[in-house]
Amino acid sequence: MDHSKIRVIVVDDESAIRASLAGYLEDFEFDVSSAGSAEEALEMLEKEPFHVAIIDLRLPGMSGDALILKAHRMVPSMRFIIHTGSAAFHLPEELRCAGVLGDHIFLKPMADMTSMVEAVEELMVGKNKGVKSKG
């Protein structure tokens, strides 16, 4: 799969985490951007679409959940991966409807980010085949 055509956005308010994810994915040739808040991410989305967003839930201002719902309405083909620090997180039904898969909730810290790359690939394949888009 040609990663360079896949546009990924990382949304996290902690720069260290943002840098790690963005850096890791860049090394695998993805086209990566990053944002420190939901608001910033929405601004970027309006200018240029992304294929996949990796989103932290606890963000200053608008929450990660709200961002997903809003982005899903703006760009229905967009796919989401959740990257959160709270172990007690349960995937709510509305996020499921927005196409978030239970398998694509990653808990911080990730000792190995290989699975993140696999998840992005999976989502892209799924989208192209038109399956998995409904979680």
């Binding site: 260290a16 790690s20 890791y24």
Partner: peptide, 22 residues
């Protein structure tokens, strides 16, 4: 505490992996 600790841990562990790769 879990959330508060997991975030900096992600900053450490995940960046170490990127550094190793690079």
């Amino acid at each position: 505490m879990a959330h508060e600790i997991n975030n900096p841990l992600a900053g450490i562990l995940q960046n170490v992996q990127v550094i190793r790769n690079r």
